[in-house]
């Protein structure tokens, strides 16, 4: 992985927000902060594998918050990633209940963590469930939806790229794929309840 130059926080934020160069932005986050984040986990009862999992999850939360404009660089990306990782690790430790003492220590420190981060992490659980549903769709469906919603390609470009006979055929395909996913989400009673509950709180 060759990096041409060190990007500053604002450049990374812009690249994630605009999706102009997602690979470079994420690679920079790894090269700049992985060591620090890994150290946090390793020095708090975690193993290297735990650190890898937690950091990956933290990156996803950061991307989500940047994309939803819930993080605009109010603090440094370093401290932001650190607080997310810390919070995710607290949750993980709580689940494992392997080290009560450390949990208590972490619980005491929880008040220092930004509540919006806690909320985002909770929302990630629902999102992860839907992401798994998405992975169960057919390969063509996943390609169409990814090219449309992530890469934001036009129907014409997707049509060419995936060799659809016409844009209308593609449009129908996209409709069916999205509808299939939505139906699966709605048929998940627990998730639907959570979503409606969240709505009632809005």
């Amino acid at each position: 992985m060759k990096l041409s130059r060190h990007l500053n926080d604002q450049e990374i934020l812009d690249q994630i927000k605009s999706k102009s160069n997602p690979n470079q932005a994420i690679s920079q986050l790894y090269s700049q902060h992985y060591g620090m984040l890994e150290h946090l986990i390793l020095t708090n009862s975690g193993q290297a594998e735990d650190a890898a999992d937690i950091i990956q999850e933290a990156m996803l939360v950061v991307v989500k918050m940047i994309r939803n404009e819930k993080f605009r660089g109010e603090s440094s990306l370093k401290s932001f990633l650190y607080s997310i990782c810390k919070n995710l690790w607290i949750n993980e430790l709580r689940k494992r209940k392997s080290n009560q003492y450390r949990n208590e220590q972490y619980e005491n420190e929880k008040s220092q963590i930004d509540l919006s981060v806690v909320e985002e992490i909770q929302q990630m659980e629902n999102l992860r469930f839907v992401m798994n549903l998405f992975e169960t769709l057919g390969e063509k469906c996943k390609q169409v939806l990814t090219l449309f919603y992530f890469e934001e390609l036009s129907m014409r470009d997707i049509c060419e790229k995936l060799a659809f006979s016409s844009e209308q055929v593609l449009r129908n395909k996209k409709y069916k794929c999205l509808q299939s996913l939505i139906q699966q989400v709605q048929s998940s009673t627990s998730l639907s309840e959570k979503l409606l509950k969240a709505l009632r709180h809005e």
Partner: peptide, 10 residues
Amino acid sequence: ISKEAIELAA
């Protein structure tokens, strides 16, 4: 949430 999940999956 589906739209967001599709994007986040990528």
